[in-house]
Design a protein around this nucleic acid. Structure first.
Length: 593
RNA sequence: GGCGCUGUAGCUUAACUGGAUAGAGCACCUGACUACGGAUCAGGAGGUUCGGGGUUCGAAUCCCUGCAGCGUCACCA
């Protein structure tokens, strides 16, 4: 809660006013204060319906009674008006000017105190047998931005990644490389490592399909053919060899995975995301077993005749769930239990956030319950930040059908578009080639990141590769452009610094100040809701309000030099808030564009 | 089939968690001091918030029901 928070002060004033007017104590939580709609006079509106039962008056009369007391007692309130059950409060301009003076003068005005809470946030979680795609991009952007947001509101955040680096999938790539690779490497073929390995995953699938067809032609049933095609048998054999620790297989596996990691690192860095630690499934997949044994000892889990271990979640409305196979090998959830434990040992976090698509909602419900039943502190700390998957107009992306939107290709495409648009406008023809390239990259990423992050993470999104992503309107580049304007003003201004002002506010000035005033509360709301799109939406509103101000008042060409100093200061703070909000989203601001 | 998620202008979306006449952007039409940066601003047109009930002073939001799409219910990960 900031000392300059007008709505908080108003909230308290309303509580007192209601007590004075009707002799009833109400809680601050009962007060619904909202920003006044544009069509009415005022900046805050109190909804008075809930208080009619105390006042025994009509909603409108209730509002008048409260408004009367507020006008008399509360120095913030200049005037009031009522419309039906809504009491609109007009705040003194000087209040807003004082708020702005604080925002402008006090370097700490947008900082937030440490909460002392440790958060581990996992995102990305790719398989190591193929390159990253649009789904991973959404995951990474949401993950990275959420981590920034949580950190911005005072938590200590650790970003981690999990590599799904073992299993049948990577074995397929390995088998295919042995057969068709001819000893080639990413270096020898000038191919990005993850793409290189991905090509063999596709090659496996094609060769496998061919084998299946041949065997069907030989008179085998479809099922027979699919289950016993030599390539598949070979991949399964390789998986078993891997689990046995066969050195040749392990070496091949290490080599191919290292190619993939190198490729991933390039994409991470291009996208501007990073991790404090990468967990590898292969290092931990055995580790959950001890926890399962523990649960079995405590009688929380049950063992069947075949030796498999299960947890009964029917009381919780779910099913019975397998935790350990009859032969003692672990399943997906077993390893996630182990990794949760490892993570707690590494970081001792208060909260563990998993940024994973909503197709795994059920899995995380189970994981949380299973660990809670064990009484582990990291059980109840689990939060699945479940986001909607990215689909194409034709439905789900399918690698087999080649409809996957590749992350690197999409980035290339965006940079190309940014270059075209920038060259078309011709505003920065004097930049050096290197500066220009940096700018195209900055704009391209802004367009892409904003496009994805402005949507509520929970919603499923449909991405049409045919439609290009906009650079105008409700977009990242528009917000960057607004920032660039504020920078342009600051570059040109040679006058004195702003101290304070007492002028009558222009409507657009008031609108901008109120938005800046709301910044910290908005960040908090976004963090509480684990919804970074709230930050994106806010940045857009600020940019729009400033653009409107730009068109309606003069800044540098205003005659009153105090007013110029004020508007320059307003431009500075606006620019800083825009840059800060966008940096949470992982978007950087150019000085010119 | 059980469970879960989603459904808002042609398209992409917002609505501060139950509040005023559902707010923007794109696309379409019209206009903007020879401009402190026009990647902008202003205006127009575009809505049965999937359908039907219910709760409430008040519902896009909560409850019931139907429809559509998707996910999940593997000794896959």
């Amino acid at each position: 809660m900031k000392s300059y928070d007008v709505s908080h002060k108003l909230n308290l004033a309303c509580v007192q006013a209601i007590e004075e007017a009707f002799g009833r104590e109400v809680s601050t939580n009962d007060i619904v204060l909202q920003h006044t709609r544009k069509d009415f006079d005022g900046q805050y509106t109190l909804v008075t319906f809930p208080f009619t039962r105390y006042s025994k008056l009509s909603p409108e009369e209730t509002g008048k009674a409260i408004g009367e007391v507020l006008q008399k007692n509360c120095p913030l309130v200049q005037q009031y008006n009522t419309v039906k059950g809504f009491l609109n409060l007009e705040i003194e301009d000087q209040v807003w000017l004082d708020v702005f003076t604080t925002l402008h003068r006090d370097k700490e005005s947008f900082s937030m105190p440490s909460t002392g809470k440790k958060v581990v946030l996992e995102y990305c979680g790719p398989n190591t047998n193929k390159p990253l795609h649009l789904g991973h991009i959404r995951n990474m952007l949401i993950g990275y931005a959420s981590a920034n947001l949580l950190s911005r509101v005072g938590h200590q955040v650790h970003k981690v990644n999990i590599y799904n680096d073992r299993g049948i999938a990577i074995c397929k790539s390995m088998v295919a490389w042995k057969h068709f690779g001819e000893g080639n490497t990413p270096q020898s073929t000038q191919t990005k490592g993850d793409h290189f390995v991905g090509e063999f995953y596709v090659a496996f699938d094609q060769a496998y399909k061919k084998q299946v067809e041949e065997r069907i032609a030989e008179g085998k049933t479809k099922e027979e053919a699919e289950n016993n095609a030599p390539l598949l048998l070979e991949a399964r054999f390789m998986l078993r060899q891997w689990e046995k620790g066969d050195q040749e297989v392990i070496d091949l596996w290490n080599m191919m995975n290292s190619w993939v990691y190198e490729g991933f690192e390039q994409t991470f860095s291009r996208l501007g995301v990073d991790f404090e630690k990468h967990y590898k499934e292969s290092d931990y997949y055995q580790d959950g077993k001890r926890l399962v044994e523990e649960g079995l000892q405590q009688g929380i889990y049950t063992q069947r005749k075949d030796g498999s271990i299960w947890v009964d979640l029917t009381q919780e409305g779910l099913d019975e769930k397998l935790l350990l196979r009859g032969d003692g090998t672990s399943v997906y959830i077993t390893q996630d239990m182990g990794i949760a434990e490892a993570r707690y040992q590494d970081f001792g976090m208060d909260r563990s956030v998993y940024v994973v698509a909503n197709e795994q909602d059920y899995h995380f419900k189970v994981l949380k319950l299973v660990l809670e039943k064990l009484g582990k502190p990291y059980g109840k700390s689990i939060f699945h930040l479940s986001y909607g998957m990215v689909d194409l107009p034709s439905g789900r992306m399918k690698s087999r059908e080649g409809t996957v939107v590749d992350a690197d290709d999409l980035l290339d495409e965006m940079v190309k578009t940014a270059r075209h648009r920038t060259e078309e406008l011709g505003k920065v023809d004097d930049l050096s080639p290197a500066e220009a390239e940096t700018l195209y990259h900055t704009l391209a990423l802004s367009a892409l990141k904003y496009f994805i992050l402005k949507v509520n993470p929970k919603k499923r999104v449909i991405f049409n590769p045919e439609d290009s992503i906009d650079f105008q309107g409700h977009t990242g580049p528009f917000i960057q452009y607004t920032y660039v304007r504020t920078r342009s003003v600051l570059r040109r201004y040679k006058g004195k610094g702003f101290e304070q002002s007492q002028h009558t506010l222009h409507e657009t000035e008031r609108d901008v100040i109120i938005l800046l005033h709301d910044y910290c509360a908005t960040l908090q709301r976004a963090a509480d809701a684990d919804d970074v799109s709230i930050v994106a939406e806010y940045a857009y509103q600020v940019a729009r309000a400033y653009s409107k101000l730009w068109s309606e008042v003069k800044i540098l060409n205003e005659e009153d030099e105090n007013l110029v100093a004020f508007r320059v200061a307003l431009s500075r703070v606006t620019g800083e808030v825009l840059a800060d909000a966008m940096s949470i989203l992982g978007i950087t601001m150019p000085e010119r564009m």
